[in-house]
Design a protein around this nucleic acid. Structure first.
Lengths: 190, 190
DNA sequence: ATGACCATGTAATCCGTTACATGATTCG
DNA sequence: CGAATCATGTAACGGATTACATGGTCAT
């Protein structure tokens, strides 16, 4: 049960369900996704379980909102999850699977369009992660000693994200280069 | 509905459910995971839907097995999925989320152990992907023109996987370096 | 003969997606 | 006043995990 614990982690500061939802779609939360229709019931269930408490607050823009806060029980649950070792059975990104089997389509224009959309997606994610990284811009390996524990762990995760998406952007661009070569050859052979 | 289509893609050659399950756990299928208890019913449902046909065969090692083959209807369904553009709402790998929120544990030994296990996992995946890549070892950007469509797409996907996991291994090693620095400093300050 | 691995499944439960439903507030 | 955005949910359905259940074959 990862979503509940991810939400617990995100609730360092009190947030509404809507806030949390936006972090999945627009924020640097690159490792998970969830819809509001899943988030609201999850927050409700955690409140019933005593992991969260909620309070109504007025919004500066828009109607009033429910702000959720972690209880001690919720914090204990988060600790348990964090100390339980890496959760590795959840790797899941279907788009690479699509690319593998796209040989069966056997139409390089389809592959090219697919990879161009994929590249755009990767670039967007990389931009978001880079701007999150830039909050630690002044930091090098020596300065990282000066961060507090939260900032340090955030920094490490962002680095993994940045490196991952940088690599994917690179691989995607190289793939497009190879595809263009093959398309040129096809045209030549027609 | 990605699993069904991923299984369709994997069934280029007839396979048993057990074969497919092993590819998720041991093989170069780094982008998805599924348990046998999910695979068997999925194969059954696809057979009922007319996407697959099955035949009993005797195994060289072990009891007899059911080999599944794609029907024309199944092939058409795969084409539809492949031509539908990248499925991007499924990014999901909880372990990076754990690392982000691990500042709350505030025990660098926990983080260090976590990262060492993560590194080991990344290295294992990278090894598997590299040995899949080595099947195309002779290939450079010029030679890739000589591959058939299936091999070419397989090659591109493996490259994305290799680059991704190489980047993660690098980021993970760097993170461990920074952690050791911080642990040393803590010891010095005690 | 016993443990490791091959092989196939079912049942209960839980997680996740899509579609639907409602209404407040702000900006132009 | 109408569209965009803020904000919170419910219902139906389908996907995924965990635990359980069964039995064959092979090497030591």
């Amino acid at each position: 049960m990862s979503l509940d614990h991810i939400l617990l982690g995100m609730l360092k500061k009190p947030c509404s369900g809507y806030d949390l939802g936006r972090q999945f779609s627009d924020g640097p939360v690159h490792f998970w996704s969830a819809e509001l229709s899943q988030i609201y019931p999850a927050l409700g269930a955690m409140t019933e379980r005593g992991w969260l408490s909620s309070a109504s607050a007025h919004s500066e823009k828009g109607p009033r909102r429910l702000l959720y806060t972690r209880t001690n029980k919720g914090k204990a649950e988060l600790q348990k999850w964090l100390r339980g070792g890496p959760v590795l059975r959840t790797e899941r990104y279907a788009h690479v699977g699509q690319l593998i089997y796209m040989g069966e389509v056997n139409d390089l224009e389809v592959t090219r369009e697919f990879l161009e959309r994929l590249l755009q997606h990767y670039e967007e994610k990389l931009d978001i992660l880079k701007s999150a990284e830039s909050a630690y811009e002044e930091v090098d390996s020596t300065d990282s000693e000066e961060m507090d524990a939260d900032a340090f762990h955030d920094f490490l995760s962002i680095q993994i994200g940045v490196e991952t998406f940088r690599a994917r952007v690179r691989a995607c661009r190289n793939a497009l280069k190879l595809i263009r070569l093959r398309i040129t050859r096809e045209d030549r052979d027609d």
